[in-house]
Design a protein around this nucleic acid. Structure first.
Lengths: 254, 254
DNA sequence: TAGTGGTCTAGACCACTGC
DNA sequence: CAGTGGTCTAGACCACTAA
């Protein structure tokens, strides 16, 4: 039994002790912490207090507690990596793909095509593409992994008259290949904007990204414009916000 | 007394009811919710349960509870605004100032110079500028407001041999004016990178930005390079992540 | 089934704020 | 000082997971 003394709230002290233990490596990612009754006995506290400590560790991204199973240790939230470089477009490469981003980090990228086909666009997407609400178009969903760990959800939206047919999404070659095919159709993207927001993860997103519920996620919306200023593609990327660093670069090439 | 029924946790139902009430405008930003004992009576629950509901609303950014005072309603977290546009550098403007960003949003900007002088650079800054740890240089801290509400903390770091003297920070004209003075000294910035991270707010940051404790904040680190590739300035911006949308644009001008 | 975490109570005491 | 939120207990019951 440890000595937990005021004035610091005891559940906060327990959270600190567990946090340090995780940081030290006493509990490895993927393993589970001792049960709440066990911890309550160990620290001489009530289960309710331990539960509060767990809630704290969850909100900080250290663990994810699962009803009936236990509290699973997650990846250290401090491991961040560069994600994206918007190169000078004169270099002939105005957009860097997921595979290229990962190559810079030493991680092995992998992409899974989840679904593709004609669907009604969500409201925010229709707005970004300046289409009427309820418009249908080509929707293409992908899951991205780094070293086989899930890291990103990507969804691409292309108006039907720009895409021509849903076949433009196959074979699956990522945005770069898609942009080439758009160019062949006379809709080559030459300008991009990215809107970066942070919001709480939905349960589905938290589950795929392997984070605690309601953890903040980056929600990046890229819009691609062709030479006539027409909006030819919108693409959303969802990433666990505490685990990533987004980098943008512009100006004269070095 | 309302009817709170399982299976939804009752504290979650209370949180939902209060959330909707705030959204409807029953409680305006700046006002305080009823006290926890009052709410406990109203909903037929224990104060502990109400306290949990409040913790939930806090983590979602709706209120900030202050010990001994009450739970203060914050600005709606859904009001987001465009913050930044990295224009094509050929247009003669490779960086848009805070005042210009705000002008696009219809908000009235105001900047307060908090401090300026020679200080030891933090570790992350020394690293970004490729200086030895412990190096001293010019540090300039500012507070930014929009319509007189605090929105951003900015700190600029310039190596001493680049700045020449601390006088380069005066008069206070924001980064654009500073970049002109750096250009006069032969260190005109021509390339920029911005690293965007999300982390929990420190108590000081939460207090200034008027958010609940530990709410996520954007931490944007801009690094400026001169024509020789020398790193001439680093600048950090802290913003409440749930309230802002960061926008980057590149490619051919429309 | 046994073990896990999730919720809730009744009551208590403390710490902080403002009058 | 009275009123506020913060913490904690002892005990209870429920819901979920896994064997």
């Amino acid at each position: 039994m440890s000595t937990l003394e005021p004035p610091r709230a005891r559940y906060k002290q327990v959270a600190s002790l567990l946090r340090e233990a995780i940081r030290r490596g006493d509990y490895l990612p993927g393993s589970t912490l001792p049960s709440q009754p066990d911890l309550a006995r160990e620290y001489g506290l009530n289960q309710s207090s331990i539960s509060r400590a767990m809630a704290m560790l969850q909100s900080e991204g250290w663990v994810r507690t699962e009803h009936g199973r236990g509290s699973v240790v997650l990846e250290m939230p401090t491991v961040k990596r560069v994600r994206r470089i918007a190169r000078d477009y004169r270099s002939g490469q105005s957009y860097s793909s997921y595979a290229e981003e990962m190559a810079d980090t030493g991680l092995t990228p992998r992409t899974e095509l989840v679904s593709w086909g004609a669907e009604t666009f969500p409201e925010g997407i229709a707005e970004a593409l300046e289409l009427d609400p309820g418009t249908r178009g080509l929707v293409r969903k992908r899951h991205m992994f780094a070293d086989d760990k899930p890291v990103q959800l990507a969804t691409s939206y292309i108006p039907m008259d720009v895409a021509g047919s849903v076949d433009i999404a196959m074979p699956d070659t990522g945005p770069s290949g898609m942009y080439e095919r758009l160019a062949e159709r006379g809709f080559g993207p030459v300008r991009f904007t990215e809107d970066i927001e942070v919001r709480s993860a939905t349960p589905d997103e938290a589950s795929f990204l392997n984070t605690a519920q309601s953890q903040p996620v980056f929600c990046v919306l890229r819009t691609a414009f062709d030479a006539n200023g027409r909006r030819v593609e919108a693409c959303t990327n969802i990433l666990a916000a505490f685990r990533w660093k987004l980098t943008y670069a512009w100006g004269q090439e070095p």
